[in-house]
Amino acid sequence: MTRFCLLIAALAFLCGSVTQSRAHALEPGYLEISALSDTTWRVFWSRPDVDGRAMDIQAVLPADCAPRSGPAPTFSNAAWTSGWIAVCTSGMTSGPLTIEKLEQTRTDVLVRYEIFPGEMRTSRLTPDQTGFIIEGETGWKSVLVAYVPLGFEHILSGVDHLLFVFALLLLISDGWRLVGAITAFTVAHSLTLAAATLGLVTLPPAPVEAVIALSIVFLASELLLRGKGAPRLSELYPWAISFSFGLLHGFGFAGALSEIGLPQWDIPLALLSFNLGVEIGQLGFVALVFAVGWAAKRVSGYPLHAITTPQTPASAVVAYAIGGVSAYWLVDRVAGFF
C-alpha cells in the first residue's frame, strides 16, 4: 500500500510539473547569412520568444564586417527577427562568428551561411560552443552534424510526442505488436514530415497541436477502459491507431523544422538527417523506459506489470495521469485558437 501511495504521489508531482511547462522547449535560434557579392551579405537573425521578449542573445559577425550586429528585433510568428546588410571587405573569414550570451541559455542556434553566392553551408552553435571561424570544406557532413542533433533534441523536448510513445508502451504488452505499432508510428510521421516540409501538404499548426493532444487523451481512455468487455480498438489494431496519429505528429515535427529552415542546395539530406535524429531520440526514449523499469524492479521488487495490467489501481492512476496532462494541453491549445 505504501508503494502504491508513493506511485500516486510521484505521478501527481509529474502532472504538476508538466502542466506548468510548455509541450515543447524553446525553439532554436536561426541565423542566415546570404552572399550578395564578394564583399556584401544579407543577414537574417531570428531569436526565440521568452515571456514576450526576445531571448537575450546576439549574433555578432566577424571583425571585418560592418555592422557586426543588427537593429532591434520585431516580433513575427512566435519569434523575434531582424535583418541587415553587412559589408565585409576581407570576406567572411576575418574572425569568428559568435552568438553572445548563448552560454547562459539552454538553446541552440542553427547557422546557414554563404562564403560566396551559391556555396551555402550549415553549422550549429550550442551553449558549449558559441562561435566558430568560417572556413573549411563544405559538404554532406556539415548537414548531418547540424540536423541530426536538431531532430534528436526536438523529440526529447517534445513532451507530448514522448507521452504518446509512452502510452503505446503501456497499452501494448505483446513484443512484436509493440514493434509493429512503433514502426507504423515512425513510417507515418516520416511521411507527413517530408510532405509538409516540401510543401506538398499544409495544415495550420494550431489545430494540429490540439489534435496531437487529443491523440494522447484517446490512448489514455484506451488504457483506462481496456479489460472491460470487448477488446478495445487499440488492442485489435494497434498499428492502425499508431499510424493514423503518427501522420498528425509528423505535421508537428514539420512545424518545428520549417521554423529552423532547410538548406536549399541539399533539402533531401537535411530532411533525412532531421528525421534520423528524431528516430534516434525516440528509440533512446523507449530504451530508457525499459531500462528504468528493469532497474526499478530489481531494486524495489515492485511488480511493475501491475501498471500495464488492465483494471488494476496502478494502471488506473497512470491512465488518469496521462489523460489529465493531455486534456490540459488540449484545452490550452484550443483556447489558443481565440
Rank of each mutant, 00 (worst) to 15 (best):
L125A: 04
I133G: 10
Y113R: 00
P117M: 06
L144K: 02
T126P: 04
T130E: 01
L144N: 08
F152T: 12
R121M: 07
D160H: 03
T122R: 00
L162F: 05
L150K: 10
E135H: 13
L150R: 12
R106L: 13
G151F: 10
E153M: 12
L125N: 04
T130R: 00
D108I: 14
I133A: 13
R124Q: 01
F116K: 15
S142F: 02
S142I: 12
L144E: 00
I155G: 06
G151N: 11
G151I: 10
F164N: 07
A146T: 14
L144S: 06
D160S: 04
I115F: 00
L150F: 04
Y113S: 04
I155E: 10
I133E: 13
E137V: 05
I133L: 11
S157Y: 01
L162I: 05
Y147Q: 10
P117D: 11
Y147F: 09
V145L: 13
D108Y: 03
T122F: 03
K141I: 15
E153I: 14
E135N: 08
V143N: 10
S157Q: 13
T138R: 12
R121H: 06
R112P: 00
D160A: 07
G136N: 11
H161F: 13
V111H: 11
D108W: 07
E135W: 06
Y113D: 07
E119A: 15
V109R: 05
E114L: 03
S157R: 11
M120C: 07
A146Y: 03
T126G: 08
L125E: 05
R121K: 14
L156Y: 02
V109Q: 02
T107W: 01
W140M: 14
Y147K: 10
V159K: 13
M120D: 05
G139M: 10
Q129T: 15
S142A: 15
V148P: 03
L156V: 10
A146Q: 08
E153K: 14
A146E: 04
E153F: 11
L162Y: 03
M120A: 14
F164E: 02
F116D: 11
L110A: 15
L150E: 14
H161R: 03
E119F: 09
H161A: 11
T122Q: 09
I133K: 09
M120N: 09
Q129M: 15
Y147D: 07
R121Q: 12
G151R: 09
H154P: 08
T130N: 00
G118R: 04
V111G: 01
F164Y: 07
L162G: 01
T126I: 13
Q129F: 12
V109M: 04
T126Y: 01
Y113T: 11
W140Q: 15
G139T: 02
R106W: 07
D160W: 00
S157V: 15
